[in-house]
Design a protein around this nucleic acid. Structure first.
Lengths: 218, 218
DNA sequence: CCAAAATACGGAGGCATCCTCCGTTTAACA
DNA sequence: TGTTAAACGGAGGATGCCTCCGTATTTTGG
């Protein structure tokens, strides 16, 4: 056996991952998202592989169990929501930025009709996924909230956790037909409620959302 | 063709259901409850049949789809909760009766670890099951609530729907370790809050639950 | 109590999906 | 460009789903 300079840090020196592996992994995730949304969590994994244009073996190498696949899809989406928050941080109006992010969340839930059941399955078995996503989303929401508070446009006595819980709770009842627009309205009201109003001019604007709430009753 | 007296109500005169059919149906439901609780909603139906001591064909005759089976199991449980309310109606203390029923509900959720994912699946596809169970449980809770209100022991400005929603919301977050005892505590506090206190002597008793809440914080 | 009819039973078998295994292919590195 | 580690694909055994039908059991009318 011959020693070569720098050989002892071979543990760090890992091979660059193969390009096709990276590409295929991504393809499978994309396909899985589509297939599960359409066919629910029981959809055939072979269908996912087919749609991704890879062999079934490839799918299983990347995601040994069905739940691994669910989890990866979901993590990716949560990550995207986190990135969206990063972008929105640079927006002009901090309150509007927060509002946009919250709305994106509702859309997120809405487009995941099929996935939601899958998530119910996964959350239950691996609860660190729940921890991860709560953490990530709390941070996302926190960064937006902080900015609005720092700008003096929003009250400071609401925690990111409270906000997230409110959001999740609102989205939880998503079986009625018009739930989505209802939640969006309630969110608007809620955000308006969080607002710090600059003296008199704002007084008149308070009535509007309140009226919308009344209208919504049944 | 000859007419015989009473022949025109032949539609009502249905054969008595066969004894073995009734028995087997019950056996399958019991087995399904156990198997799904243990193995989650993906558990093998053949395992259910085996445990019930019937052939797979028998299982499928009674419950053509997996969801039919879920639904039947769940309906049966809801029905049992309803019956429990009937019994509790005759209890001495109406407030205590309501409290007991609420507590049973928490237990119900707690023992349905595996089933809950199955229900998430089923609720999503057949939402009349949701309607049925909400209706049944609202009635159950309403009958207990009314009695307590009529006895002058509880405030009358809380609807059965509100109460049910509170209960469901409390039980929704059931992934943390100590959730069950936490919910039970919160229920106690809540019930105490609903109470109409008889004048002075009660004043002292109000502090107790409030302290328990503070203690609970994290 | 019996015979006929209705009903239910069980499980064999066809089919779909799961998941592993391994010979072949491809990309990284030197 | 050759070597080699890593990834690919899909055949195939195992398992579970669900239908179908010959057999067994129960009910009912006499």
């Amino acid at each position: 056996m011959i020693y070569i300079a720098g050989m002892d840090d071979h543990a760090d020196q890992i091979r660059k991952p193969r390009a096709d592996a990276v590409r295929n992994r991504e393809r499978v995730l994309e396909a899985a998202k589509a297939v599960f949304n359409a066919g629910g969590p029981e959809a055939s994994l072979e269908a996912v592989a087919k749609r991704a244009g890879v062999g079934i073996g490839t799918l299983y190498r990347h995601f040994p169990t069905r739940e691994d696949l669910f989890e990866a899809v979901y993590r990716r989406e949560v990550e995207q929501l986190g990135e969206l928050a990063e972008q929105l941080k640079n927006a002009k109006d901090p309150v509007d930025a927060l509002r946009r992010w919250l709305r994106s969340n509702v859309e997120f839930v809405a487009t995941k009709k099929g996935m939601s059941a899958a998530l119910a399955l996964t959350f239950q078995s691996t609860s660190d996924l729940a921890a991860f996503s709560m953490d990530r989303l709390t941070k996302a929401i926190g960064s937006l909230l902080d900015r609005a508070v720092a700008a003096g446009q929003m009250r400071g006595d609401v925690s990111p956790e409270d906000l997230l819980r409110t959001l999740v709770g609102m989205c939880y009842i998503n079986d009625q037909p018009g739930w989505q627009s209802s939640v969006l309205r309630m969110l608007d009201v809620f955000v308006d409620g969080l607002r710090v109003r600059p003296a008199s001019k704002a007084r008149a604007r308070v009535a509007k959302p309140a009226k919308r709430v009344a209208k919504r009753q049944r």
